[in-house]
């Protein structure tokens, strides 16, 4: 019964992610309208056959902007996690495999950074780099490094004295070969689960930063930025904020369900 239940959650999550991928592909192939073209006559227009989700305060098609916005958000989340996972992997692998003083010092620093809310650290780095798509990707990527480093370190520590590692060490394999050819493939499930969780956190963080106006800059579209715009017209056109919010929640919920399902599978 439990396995069936777990399978169901996994399948729901996969279906949701498939819908998101379909939306991204739709946005990549052709959006219904140019997401940046304004038309004052369509200001805050309601849903119609021409504009399925209506238009925003500048008369831009909301559906087209959502399709592009989802892509922007996902690209930032992907970039963030690639930066975080790559640097985190290097730091975590070296400290976890070798241990010693470098491990002690780096992990103390790591824990101090980890105890801080990610949005606060992102704000410090954005203050340095300025706002914009690339800037928040780098800022969030740096902020994500400690959590990846911590997870990868503990996995490498677990594996470094296992029989298969001892065997390849006796066969004369070097540290780099052991770390990245032998241990890394064995921690792929943990890494994949962390990537999905990280992806979810990155979507949330990007949405918050863009909502604050220091993330993605207009006229580019992002769900956080659109929600911030929509809030100003909440009483005049509540559908605008609710639609954008729905897609944002759908995105976050899909990756949360997927990470939960993967985590349960890993623990099973």
């Amino acid at each position: 019964m439990r396995n069936k239940k777990r399978g169901l959650q996994f399948h729901i999550a996969i279906s949701f992610v498939a819908v998101i991928i379909a939306l991204v592909l739709w946005g990549l192939i052709r959006t219904p309208y140019d997401p940046k073209v304004m038309d004052v006559s369509l200001k805050l227009a309601k849903s119609s056959a021409d504009h399925l989700l209506g238009c925003d305060q500048f008369g831009r098609d909301i559906l087209s902007r959502i399709l592009v916005g989802i892509r922007t958000t996902l690209m930032i989340a992907l970039g963030t996690n690639l930066i975080g996972a790559f640097i985190g992997l290097l730091v975590g692998a070296v400290t976890g495999y070798f241990g010693g003083l470098a491990d002690e010092v780096l992990m103390r620093f790591n824990d101090a950074v980890l105890s801080f809310p990610s949005i606060l650290l992102s704000l410090v780095i954005i203050a340095l780099l300025g706002s914009g798509t690339y800037q928040i990707t780098i800022a969030m990527g740096i902020v994500f490094v400690p959590s990846y480093a911590r997870i990868i370190r503990s996995e490498f520590m677990k594996c470094r004295n296992m029989d298969y590692v001892q065997s390849v060490r006796l066969m004369g394999a070097g540290a780099l070969r052991i770390m990245f050819i032998h241990i890394l493939p064995n921690i792929r499930v943990t890494l994949l689960t962390s990537l999905v969780i990280g992806f979810n956190n990155a979507v949330l963080c990007e949405a918050a930063l863009s909502f604050l106006g220091i993330g993605v800059q207009p006229p580019q579209a992002s769900l956080g930025l659109m929600l911030s715009d929509a809030q100003a017209y909440l009483f005049a056109r509540p559908g605008y904020a609710l639609t954008v919010g729905f897609f944002m929640v759908f995105l976050i919920l899909s990756f949360a369900l997927l990470s939960d399902a993967l985590r349960e599978d890993a623990h099973a």
């Binding site: 949405a207 909502f211 929600l227 809030q231 609710l242 919010g245 944002m248 929640v249 919920l253 949360a256």
Partner: peptide, 18 residues
């Protein structure tokens, strides 16, 4: 619960304002 965990606080703020 699962749904509330997926809603960012600022969107909850907008929903509560509404």
């Amino acid at each position: 619960n699962q749904l509330f965990m997926a809603i960012p606080p600022f969107f909850i703020g907008i929903l509560l304002t509404y």
